[in-house]
Amino acid sequence: MNWTLRAVRAVARLAVRRGGMLTTVQDLGRQGYGHLGVPQQGAVDSYALRWALRLAGCDLGDAALEITLLGPELEVLDACFAGLAGAELGASLNGEPWPAGESRELAPSDVISFAGPRQGFRAYLGFAGGVSGERVLHSRATDLQSRVGGQGGRALWAGDLLEVGGGGGERVEAPVATSLQRDTVRFVPGPRDGLFPDGALKSLTSGPYRVTTESNRVGMRLAGPEVPGAPGDIPSEGTPLGAIEILPSGQPIILLQGRGSVGGYPVPATVISADIPVLAQLRPGQDLRFAQVDMAAARAARREIEERLLLPLLASP
């Protein structure tokens, strides 16, 4: 191997030609500051993020780009190395298809673009050495509401210059799908199922729910069978990731990484951690079905996800 030819800058740059619909810098988020009212943030699909980081040879704490539905157009200015995971949003490198679950070496004047969504909602693009950006409370995650973190607390725009760590890597592929594409989402009862009449959770599993367009990184607003007996406002309390809040109308909102650290609607059930990546890939307009499981099943599903993320990467031809 000729190391001089593989030498890359410590910092590499990419020019943002188009920002895409919503492209933000995200990592695993800021945890442990909820008591100050600081939201968690971070990648909505942490499963796909972790694959993108692995494919790019990053550390688990590094940041990557979270790409939503309509991707950006990026021009590579300096040699670097990247991994793509999550949704299939029609990614290509200089016009050649770049499937999710694969890494690529990038050379100056290469162009990364996204032709349009094929499957899923969020893709993740990791770069060796991680994506630079404003680091607040030990995280580069973009907080669009508080306007901090990542690229000045906002989505990428045309004209932005993106800095990544630089460094090379071996071209690899993920051994399994890097996103979980399903329309069934599992929940466990609690914490506030006791505030609802008996059988209220049966409404959640009684039929499909449409993901409405009033959905974002804060939460997914659903439309479907009404959950009866919602007590309306309750004294505000801490909100777990995946909390299924029931509005006074009986319709649910599932809280995601961008949620406020406390909320005032009752939460009769919580989506299991293994299925947050499933939610992350559902588009507005799609339907989901809920299934109720017990805690043992929730834990087993999470273990299975963690085991899958440890599978060895495959060398690419």
């Binding site: 006791g194 309390e237 990731l241 995946g242 909390a243 919580t270 951690s273």
Partner: peptide
């Protein structure tokens, strides 16, 4: 109270 598999209330 259980609040998913990553939190307790």
């Amino acid at each position: 109270l259980p609040a998913g598999d990553e939190a307790l209330l």
